[in-house]
């Protein structure tokens, strides 16, 4: 351990020397941002849904800003480890967090002791993308819409799977139960894939999960989508009905955004936000729409703050109502 620190120390001295040299060479460095690679902390493992959103944006932003945007996957504890690390990072405009609905809105209600404060420790840069939560059923379930599902639930017990306790899928399921009065039993899984497998095999009847994880099965006819949780229908699955259209007051989305440590200069935050809106129409980012994501998200800072406030309130209530808290 001490050896390790010694090494870090030496590396740090070398790096400091380098930075000093750079600072001398470019006295107006403050005005020019970015002058070195930007680190984006992804608080979930590589290959997961959050990583899938992060990679195309990182690629497009690297090209736009002419500086590499490097992803650092620091998974664990529902994203709290990575989010806490980002909150404690130097606010120099070179470290950002890829925050999620989990790290910024659900976790404060879920974890009694959170190592970071999603409101005080961060400045919001931009919301990147959102995904409606889909209610999907095994094709053998004799219900093709919400009304038929409600009737079926009167006759026999129905179970719904989710990617785990406190995930957007689970909580949307709980919100649906409250709003519709339909009785369902929640069966938590360790991630989307095992839940989807049990649903395909008919061991559970239903599942609530962000659309992009189940879209392939729906398109292949292996699952049927009963409703989606967005306000409007989505381009990737135009036939899907929303909960609101079906008369159930449920409107939720899983979402991903970029957040900066609280003391980061406003000028850099604004510049980064501009870059993010600048890359929205690039092909790599547009491809996210094909997998079921929504790229139309709130933009000006007042709308953003209102959105985040409403989200924290909505999910916080869902956590408390479902009794999903972790202790």
């Amino acid at each position: 351990m001490t050896k390790d620190q010694g090494m870090t120390h030496r590396v740090a001295i070398v790096l400091l020397g380098l930075f000093a040299a750079i600072a001398h060479a470019a006295p107006e460095a403050q005005a020019v941002w970015p002058t070195r690679p930007i680190k984006l902390i992804v608080p979930f493992p590589a290959g997961g849904p959050t990583d899938i959103v992060a990679r195309p944006f990182a690629e497009a932003l690297s090209a736009f800003l002419k500086q590499p945007v490097v992803l650092e996957n620091r998974g664990g504890a529902g994203g709290t480890i990575g989010a806490a690390a980002a909150a404690k990072s130097a606010p120099d405009g070179y470290t950002f967090l890829l925050g999620t609905v989990g790290t910024q809105a659900i976790n404060p209600a879920l974890y009694p002791k959170l190592a970071y404060n999603p409101v005080k420790d961060f400045k919001t840069v931009a919301i990147l993308a959102a995904a409606p939560v889909a209610l999907v059923a095994n094709p053998a379930v004799p219900a093709s819409n919400i009304a038929e599902l409600a009737a079926l639930a009167e006759k026999r017990p129905l179970r719904f799977g989710s990617a785990g306790n406190g995930t957007p899928g689970h909580l949307t399921g709980e919100l649906f139960k409250t709003a519709s009065g339909v009785a369902l039993t929640h069966v938590p899984y360790r991630g989307s894939a095992p839940a989807a497998q049990d649903l395909l095999g008919g061991h559970i009847e239903l599942m609530f999960d962000p659309l992009q994880s189940v879209l392939a099965y729906v398109k292949a006819g292996k699952l049927q989508a009963l409703a989606i949780s967005s306000a409007q229908s989505v381009a990737a699955l135009p036939s899907a009905v929303t909960f609101l259209q079906a008369g159930v007051k449920v409107e939720t989305a899983a979402w991903w955004g970029i957040f900066a440590p609280a003391e980061t200069p406003d000028a850099i935050v604004a510049q980064f936000a501009k870059a993010i809106y600048g890359v929205r129409d690039t092909a790599v980012v547009k491809a996210l729409e094909d997998i079921g994501l929504l790229l139309q998200t709130p933009r000006d800072s007042r709308q953003l703050e209102e959105f985040l406030l409403a989200e924290r309130e909505k999910w916080g209530k869902a956590v408390r109502d479902s009794g999903a808290g972790i202790d």
Binding site: I81, K113, N165, P188, A324, G325, I326
Partner: peptide, 14 residues
């Protein structure tokens, strides 16, 4: 996974 309760973590998020 089933109950969301932390077991033997000694309060360490890691």
């Amino acid at each position: 996974v089933n109950s969301g309760v932390e077991r033997f973590t000694f309060g360490l998020p890691e």
